[in-house]
Design a protein around this nucleic acid. Structure first.
Lengths: 189, 189, 189, 189
DNA sequence: GCATAAGCGAGACGGTACGTCAGGTCTTACG
DNA sequence: CGTAAGACCTGACGTACCGTCTCGCTTATGC
């Protein structure tokens, strides 16, 4: 890819870019998605409103850029000695991500917005952090699966639904989830 | 329970109540949740703005009241001859509900809003249509389950995640989902 | 005059009428004319809103009915020994009325409203308390004046303007006003 | 006086300012003070509501700014050859102003509002167009008066009361008013 | 080394929805 | 049939944020 190679003009301020991303991180935790406004972001970042609009069209885009890197890191788990340990560790990470990580809260927020905003839906589809992380674990644990997408959904889905529907994550029996999943896979293999 | 028995005053207009609920039904499909405004609802319903605020605090409450009855009906499936047929039929109904039913689209919208609005979260928790419908099917198909909530999550979760993450519902292999679920239950029984 | 002789039904409640007039008296002092509302009057009087509208069209009418009797009484001064004493006493009463009497404040309020509301203008013209009171004093003091209306205006006007334009009434030299007025009348007689 | 010298930002739109003032001028004549709303002003001016509120707090402030310059001009009369001619000319101008000039109607409106709104009272006291115009005439006609404020009130008051109380201005004998005033001044001098 | 060009913070612009309030009308049950 | 209560529709209130614009200024490139 070739740089656009500007023919002069002041270059984009990296300082402003980071100030915006940090402002969004902070504000998302402080006031929540609904009360997050472009105006508020600009003021918190100490940046002109036009500067925000110049580089991002919507608040969803900013949240996405601010959280996707963290999300990928947090959902990466090291290889484990047994399938059960690997799957359990992944589910632990998934639950922790969705319930306690700022990036995970941002993800839930975006996924929520995607339900009624096609632009956001396309945005999160363009970098499917949850699916990709599950895929990585499955490839390592049970190579050569057919319909890997659907298997990943069977892995992620129960915990995902539990949390999205507002249930208490500490009452979730992750070990049982991991065992059921593995048995449903192995029996059919 | 005794009626509050008002001591005079004009009674609430049932006509206004229904006009508002229908207006929300219509507008939700036409313009979507984000562009759904209290002002717009009142105007579409031919009702005063104050009248809307008098009976509902937020648009989420109106959507909930407008869709919960439909939701319960659409998620009820008749008894089937075999467990596989019963589970499959339920999953079919679930997918159809979440993707094509106005009430289901309303439900996704509310669940999305609940991610960053505790009031909405409490509202949908107060009448858990998805969980209750799954529970009904499970009671009939595999009586005496331990941890029925978590089993319901294993039933609902995969399809739920598939759809919420924006994947194409026609590419979902429901038969395979039902078989995996039943085997994971039966093997462990 | 014949009573309308109602053909049955509950008669008008004198109690409700007085409650409304007292409520207006009180509220006018407490919150002022601008913040005086039909709704507020009804609630303060413990009376139905419809009952207020049934008997008075506007808040100006209620204020008028509530204050005109008091106004006439307060602007009546006893005969004095000399013209100067009579005129001075009248001007004292006028200033006190316009600045300190609830009825006088109500009058200023109505006169203000009359500037942009023909209905109110007609209402206060129908019972010209200020002009009538001045006329009474002039008839007694200097009988047989030509153009009594305009002379009354010369008597009332200076103090009236002083107060309406917001000047401090304690800085008004009433004695000087009375002397000037009498001299302007006598010289020309 | 130094300009506030803003440190950046789009400058105030003179076009918007004038559009608002003209809209108020027009609407005051068309619909009157009571039916004059901030919303209506903004719409008529083709201006955002916020823009109106940014520069003026109340409709009284707008009316004041829209009319004070006209008022001062209309109440200025050229020097006359005799005191009687000068005073008469001033009273003519005063009556014409209060009854036929848009600025004068605006002034009556403000003076009315001032009776129950201290903010408006202070506003019109801050630039006392009536008093100042009378003062100017008196200084020229009868220099060296004691208590010039009260003398001005004696000059303005009778005509002012006549008009404010709703009487017909064509029935006012201005020549007689002027003569009475001069005699009351000269006799005492 | 000076013109050109784009990015910057600030803040006013025309809009629109917010949630509240009062207006004036109506529909109840009660007396 | 008058009354108190209170729901009804209407529409203005003053505020917040939208996304755009216009300032003066800064910071690069390229002639």
């Amino acid at each position: 890819m070739i740089e656009p190679k500007s023919r002069g003009g002041r270059p984009r301020s990296e300082q402003a870019r980071e100030a915006v991303l940090h402002a969004v991180d902070d504000l998302l935790l402080e006031v929540g998605y609904a009360a997050l406004t472009m105006k508020g972001i600009a003021e918190r970042a100490g940046v002109g409103r036009q500067t925000v609009y110049r580089w991002w069209s919507t608040k969803a885009e900013i949240i996405f850029e601010a959280s996707v890197a963290d999300a990928e890191e947090e959902l990466t788990v090291p290889p484990a000695r047994t399938p059960l340990a690997g799957i359990s560790a992944y589910l632990e990470a998934l639950v922790r991500f969705l319930t306690h990580s700022p990036a995970g809260i941002a993800y839930r927020t975006l996924l929520a917005a995607a339900q009624h905003d096609p632009a956001v839906a396309q945005l999160i589809a363009s970098r499917d952090v949850l699916g990709a992380s599950a895929q990585a674990v499955l490839d390592r644990t049970i190579p050569g699966l057919a319909a890997p997408d659907q298997v990943a959904a069977r892995l992620i889905g129960p915990a995902f639904y539990w949390i999205m529907s507002g249930r208490d994550s500490t009452e979730l029996d992750i070990r049982e989830l991991a065992e059921s999943f593995l048995q449903s896979v192995q029996v059919r293999a």
